[in-house]
């Protein structure tokens, strides 16, 4: 199995009082074995929906209209709740955005980390504790024997995120989903957490990582492959090197020019992409990016573009590439 996770033509709608939100449309992406895949996009582009679907945790008003989510060859969308639960935390783990809220405040780290090993019935309590301490040491918590009895609020944000990573990796899952794991942290901590993830990924943990972010710099530093999402569609995907050197979709190009880290000249006005993200209830006809696209031409307004190859393993949905 060369792909740990492979999502094919996934389409998801949400029924809301204001109408049907077409949150994901025809989304396909792959997370290869032992690779880090970055998923990048603005707020509301469907990143979170994608993650929930991959974990089988879609909100109750969400409906899968089509497609499949294959994890190690089995379709998560067709699994029973019991099967799903045995995969979550064991084969797929997740690290959340805000470490201030993602740990239960009333349980000590020891309780949290021993409880999470409940599936290992044969493991004795002190073995579970030893394993938890070992994990804390690996994520760089100093003095883990003492610190394990502390409560989450006694740790700083960066330390909490390390604990969350330790909890996610304690079962050595084959897929780790990191949902903007550094957005809530300041820049120095961000760098530390990124290095930690890279280091863990490079050493004994066999996990593939799906790394969700809106920070292009992080994606460039972390990932092997990039998936760019816009308004519920994957508009471009490819290897990091290729995509950053040859951005082929006007949206990816615009994103890259807007990244403050890439601006060379001193300026008082940061570049932006004019216009707004389209309303997902009432989508524009044709290409979703057409209303904001500087290069839009006649065919864009008619039918949605199909993915067109830019290079091997690099494709973009744009008529400029395949008219």
């Amino acid at each position: 199995m060369d792909h740990v996770l492979s999502i094919r033509n996934l389409t998801i709608d949400f029924d809301t009082p204001r109408g049907r939100v077409h949150a994901l449309r025809d989304v396909s992406l792959e997370v290869p074995h032992r690779k880090i895949v970055g998923i990048v996009g603005e707020s509301g582009c469907g990143k979170s929906t994608l993650i929930s679907a991959a974990l089988g945790l879609l909100a109750s008003n969400g409906t899968v209209r089509g497609g499949e989510v294959l994890f190690e060859g089995k379709d998560i969308l067709k699994m029973s709740q019991t099967d799903l639960r045995s995969i979550r935390g064991e084969r797929i783990s997740m690290v959340f955005q805000d470490p201030m809220t993602s740990l239960n405040p009333v349980l000590s780290v020891a309780q949290l980390m021993t409880d999470i090993q409940y599936r290992h019935l044969k493991r004795k309590p002190d073995e579970k504790r030893a394993r938890a301490i070992e994990m804390l040491r690996q994520v760089g918590i100093p003095d883990p024997e003492q610190r394990i009895d502390h409560y989450p609020f006694q740790f700083s944000g960066g330390m909490r995120q390390r604990i969350a990573i330790a909890m996610a990796l304690i079962t050595n899952p084959s897929l780790l989903i990191a949902d903007e794991p550094t957005t809530a942290l300041d820049v120095t901590l961000e760098a530390q957490i990124i290095h930690l993830l890279r280091e863990l990924h490079g050493s004994k943990f066999q996990s593939s990582i799906a790394f969700v972010s809106h920070n292009l710099g992080l994606i460039a530093e972390m990932c092997d492959e990039v998936v760019v999402m816009y308004a519920g569609e994957v508009i471009e995907q490819g290897s990091v090197r290729d995509l950053f050197h040859r951005p082929s979709h006007p949206y990816t190009q615009a994103l890259l020019t807007c990244d403050p880290a890439r601006i060379k000249k001193a300026t008082r006005e940061l570049p932006t992409i004019p216009g707004d993200v389209p309303n997902l209830i009432d989508l524009p006809q044709g290409c979703v990016f057409r209303p904001r696209c500087p290069k839009a031409f006649e065919p864009c307004g008619k039918t949605p573009p199909r993915p067109a190859a830019v290079a091997a393993g690099h494709e973009a949905r744009c008529f400029l590439l395949a008219p």
Binding site: R88, E90, L107
Partner: peptide, 19 residues
């Protein structure tokens, strides 16, 4: 978020509620 996190790590309803 920590409840969602526990669910994402595989906890069932009894575990979420009880623990």
């Amino acid at each position: 978020e920590f409840i969602l996190a526990e669910r994402a790590l595989g906890a069932n309803m009894a575990r979420v509620l009880g623990v």
